[in-house]
Write a protein that binds this DNA or RNA. Structure first.
Lengths: 149, 149
DNA sequence: TTAGATGCAAAGACTTTGCGCACTT
DNA sequence: AAGTGCGCAAAGTCTTTGCATCTAA
């Protein structure tokens, strides 16, 4: 099996391959994404990057993430109300977001196989597994609801 | 079968029942939502409202939609990148959004029955049918892709 | 009458963009 | 050396909020 862009080097190879330049900022963003477990908001990426490279500006992070997205290195999704979250496309699955506590879990794409076929058949709609984001209530908040404060 | 809040009168009853006041702005927003097929952005709601009541300000529309949401009259979802879309909670299902052309279709909640059970069983996660939004590629754009310009 | 609702305008959060210098190639 | 990428700051969306006024009950 071939893991797509899950290492910093692979990411930077993609960048180079696209005739884009490999800069310190891009390398650092790549490192942050690789190290991250799960998804990060742009702000979180920026903070993590600035932790190592304080001189990297937020707008650069936006631009790099945009470039990475064009190169299919990352994917972004709007989970809750506001800020978008990014993560490596190689590590993608579905997102379950709890509306109560905002916790999110990532689950294997396999869960969407049946739905995917159904939607394709019924509507000719091809589900994008990289963007599947489901809202609901997590187990913890469900039980918390049964036993109110 | 009892249709929840699908008529203007029912909506306004809910408002009254919550000890909130029934105003012209609220009535007009209700009318717009009832007449609307599918979902509307706040901007679209505002324009439709101002078509009849030019003096209603956008901030009021925001406030009214917020109130309606608390009263479970409407539901809002973030489909694409930016603006949120609202619609009556009685008319809710899943949303399929095409990433290419941004078209969205609404589909019956029944499509999510299996997934719902699966997620509940596997993760104790209770899917919120009002907020299910799936991204992908619609039938039209899929065939368009096979035959590029 | 009187407390909630509205309009207006300013503030906020998130994201994009213009410009000149710096750095990669 | 040449041109892309960057930092900075300003501008742009979308949404929220403060306050004085108005209005539904």
């Amino acid at each position: 099996m071939t893991k797509p862009e899950n290492s910093v080097d692979e990411i930077l190879s993609s960048v180079r391959g696209a005739a884009k330049r490999v800069t310190i900022a891009k390398r650092t963003v790549a490192e942050v994404l690789v190290n991250a477990r799960g998804h990060l908001t742009v702000d979180e990426v920026t903070i993590a990057v600035q932790d190592r490279r304080p001189d990297v500006s937020p707008s650069t992070v936006y631009r790099i993430l945009e470039e990475f997205e064009e190169l299919k290195i990352v994917v972004h999704t709007h989970l809750g109300q506001s800020a978008a979250v990014y993560h490596l496309s190689g590590a993608v699955h579905g997102h379950l977001t709890c509306e109560q506590c905002n916790a999110t879990v990532q689950i294997p794409a396999a869960h969407f196989d049946a739905l995917s076929k159904d939607l394709q058949k019924s509507y000719g709609f091809m589900l994008d597994r990289h963007h599947v984001a489901i809202s609901g209530t997590c187990a913890h908040c469900q039980s918390a609801r049964r036993r109110p404060t």
